[in-house]
Amino acid sequence: MKKIFEVIKPGLSTSIQDLGRVGYQKYGIPTSGAMDSFAHRVANLLAGNQEEEATLEIMLMGPQLKVLQDTVVAIGGADLSATIDGKPLYPWKSFRVYAGQILSFGRPVNGMYAYLAVSGGFFAEEVMGSKSTYAQANIGGLEGRVLQKGDILLSEDVNLKSIRAGRYLKETDVPNYEQHRPIRVIAGPDIFAFSDKTYQQFYQESYRITEQSNRMGSRLEGKALSHADRADIISDAVLPGTIQVPANGQPIVLLSDRQTTGGYARIATVITTDIPLLVQKKIGSEIQFLSVSLERAQADYLQQQRFLKMLQTALQQHV
């Protein structure tokens, strides 16, 4: 283990995340984990890691970090104008950085969440099988909280000679966070809590992402959705991407730090591959929803899994 970064400025909300806690939701423990798991995985692969290693999740206004030891880093996800000693560090590419250099983030260009991966992965105590920070309960990451000024980040030791810098994601594979395409969902599970008319409205109207959105969920605002009967349901499990509609009719899409159960009717669930597109939308963006079949959703999910496998193989061959 080695000291890899010193936090000069922590940024707005920077935390250690991995793919989240699996198996503890039955006890009420949220999964947490990277909001955009695709960007997190790719950043890791580019830095020569396994995709499940911990990265630094950086929201909108990024930190300033002093490099304490030579290493290789890669950034995936949002373009938050990262620089090393003032020179640009482009997203979706790996770079060698040297002790004494300053890694800074600046003006957000596109997207909301960037993932900084470091060769060897960020070190944190595993709590219930995951290094992910869940700040509400002080679990995981660095003392269960977001970064603060003066924190020292650790990484696992790794033979740097075996890690090549300059690896990148092909431009055609880079997600476009600006594109206007609807967020795809599977209807339900509470389909009978809403009339057909409400469903039509849900698919036709656009909804704005409000500033009350966070790691727990995206709070949306638009023409209120009415319930067939009532908004409350008997408390039941919620999943990543589940869209709840409370009594005020304004939908909430539940995300990484969501509670495990909820008491509002669920109109639909965002499909796995579209969650990154949603979380990378800026506050104030208008979004629309589109209903897709399970077959379509799973085909895209499997396609993405294959893509990550291929990327990993391709990167390994280029040592």
Binding site: V22, G23, K26, S235, D236, A237, L239, T261, Q298
Partner: peptide, 22 residues
């Protein structure tokens, strides 16, 4: 099956479609 969440009246099961089809 990766995990499950029991509730008042239901059981929600989370699975990996790469390992088992619906």
């Amino acid at each position: 099956i990766t995990e499950w969440i029991p509730a008042y009246t239901s059981m929600t099961i989370y699975y990996n479609p790469g390992k088992i089809t619906y």
